[in-house]
Design a protein around this nucleic acid. Structure first.
Lengths: 108, 108
DNA sequence: TTTTATTACCACGACAGACATAGTAATTGC
DNA sequence: GCAATTACTATGTCTGTCGTGGTAATAAAA
């Protein structure tokens, strides 16, 4: 039940995290976000797919088609070295952001 | 040096925090954000003033003119009860958001 | 056997928030 | 007298999110 505004700056980071270990595809990523966040964040389909496009345009992921013989064809995404680097930077930025926001939180 | 995307969801909350104790105005709020964040977050003027407009439209703040006899006239903003309530909710949401994001951070 | 649910993806357009740019207006310090 | 600082506003652009709706395949239920 997190609003999209507050997590907005981290959608790309979340997706990249889920690609660190192995390539994946839209539906699986979506499911993993829901599960890992314990239903607290459910990414919208359109948000997810437009994030993939953006990440690919920036060179942080590469796409390829799966070789499924049944079911609809999947588009898989694989994180690039530059994507890993970007992820690391975002993790660093997160620590700073968290500290800053906490200075303005909870005075009630 | 925080990107605007990552703090975007908290601009309103940050402003409301700075109004909890006493009414204030644009330039002062801007300075306090810079100081409290130790220069890590500098809000853009236009972002700030458009936030005031939004907060007032939503009934979270009320504006009035200061009685400065010299200098340019200031527009002061005062937090409303509904603004305080909204601030409290945002603080709660922050805790959830932080926990969720941390599940996707720092696996490198 | 038709319908429904689930998996899987994409196109299009609307909207809101952040920001660049530029302008107005007054005071203080050099 | 001119720059720097204070204080605010108007206008238009850009990006990310999301609503709506469509395509396509399979499995299970009715």
């Amino acid at each position: 039940m997190i609003g999209s505004d507050v997590i907005r700056g981290y959608n790309d980071t979340i997706i990249l995290y889920l690609l660190l270990e192995a390539p994946s595809y839209g539906y699986e990523i979506s499911r993993k976000i829901r599960e890992l966040s314990e239903e607290k964040y459910v990414i919208k389909e359109t948000t997810l797919y437009s994030a993939f496009t953006r990440l690919e345009r920036k060179g942080y992921v590469e796409s390829f088609y799966g070789d499924e013989t049944n079911g609809k064809r999947r588009t898989y995404y694989k994180i690039t070295e530059s994507g890993r680097e970007y992820y690391r930077e975002k993790c660093e930025e997160w620590r700073v952001t968290r500290e800053v926001i906490e200075k303005f939180i909870c005075k009630i």
